[in-house]
């Protein structure tokens, strides 16, 4: 049994909030760079250049690359031999978000109730926390700020097993087509297949965390990822929806077993500011 102080969790989350918003991962930068010479639309190329310039400036100036610094989505892999002392673990994460969004001059983008008053919570809490208990005596925290523009274009559909691969492909491509420029393309398309209603959505979101350019750890999905990316990039939506070849940088699929009657499919769109950072305590 290892003891970890709650204050250490807060400090780690604070840092992750700031770093995730200011420093885009190299894999995303590399995919954006690769896209420029392939983009046929002059407007599209100009937009891709602006995005890259912006992301480099953000890192250099220590500013958030996008003004939508998002909801703090936190994936925790909690070692079962860890004992948190000196405070409430969930509150320690929220305090880290509070401090990170304050000290990093990040935008507070959450409202209290979603319908009636919609008053800003003023500190970007509560975070959305996904906990998983794993073997070991460390805590791994991945913080993924998620903006509203791309999240709003996401969808879960309870498909039928008979819809098959073709049904899934049509649904995913059509979801991207209907989204047009709204999710800030070029996007990354997270597809969750299986589980159940809520699990499919979580799979789709987790799929976004995979490194761009990496193969699917489960090779049965590689051909479908390739086909989906090809079909999506034939849509013509292009950078920011103004026409072009670069609509998506990648399609990532994550699947798990499901009920004999079901085939849930979720699509979680991620804008080009595909932000996430991980720390291990």
């Amino acid at each position: 049994m290892r003891e970890i102080d709650a204050s250490g969790v807060t400090a780690a989350v604070r840092r992750l909030c700031i770093d995730a918003n200011n420093l885009l991962e190299e894999d995303v930068m590399a995919k954006l760079e690769e896209a420029i010479p392939k983009e046929e639309s002059p407007v599209g190329r100009e937009i891709l250049e602006q995005i890259l310039t912006n992301d480099r400036m953000a890192a250099r100036l220590g500013m958030p690359m996008c003004q939508d610094t998002g909801v703090a989505v936190v994936f925790v892999e909690f070692g079962q031999d860890v004992h948190v002392i000196g405070g409430d673990f969930t509150e320690a994460i929220n305090e880290g978000v509070r401090q990170g969004y304050r000290d990093g001059f990040l935008r507070k983008s959450l409202v209290t109730d979603p319908v009636i008053e919609r008053k800003n919570t003023k500190d970007n809490t509560p975070a959305i926390i996904h906990m998983q208990i794993v073997p070991g005596e460390s805590i791994q925290i991945t913080l993924a700020p998620k903006g509203g523009g791309s999240e709003n274009m996401s969808e879960v559909r309870m498909m039928q097993p008979s819809d098959g691969i073709e049904g899934i492909t049509d649904f995913v491509v059509d979801r991207v087509r209907r989204s047009g420029g709204n999710p800030c393309p070029p996007v990354i398309v997270g597809v969750g297949i299986g589980g159940n209603f809520e699990q499919s959505a979580l799979l789709a979101k987790k799929a976004l965390l995979r490194r761009l350019g990496s193969l699917n750890p489960d090779p049965i999905w590689n051909p479908l990822e390739v086909e989906l990316l090809d079909r999506i990039n034939r849509l013509g939506i292009g950078p920011m929806g103004l026409g072009g070849r670069t609509t998506a940088l990648a399609v990532h699929i994550l699947a798990q077993p499901c009920h004999i009657a079901s085939m849930p499919v979720a699509v979680n769109l991620q804008c080009h500011a595909a932000r996430h950072k991980t720390a291990v305590i």
């Binding site: 912006n54 400036m57 953000a58 690359m65 420029g181």
Partner: peptide, 13 residues
């Protein structure tokens, strides 16, 4: 007019 979404630092200059 369309501005580039996600180019918050560039546009702020």
């Amino acid at each position: 007019f369309a501005a580039t979404g996600g180019a918050g630092v560039l546009l702020a200059q």
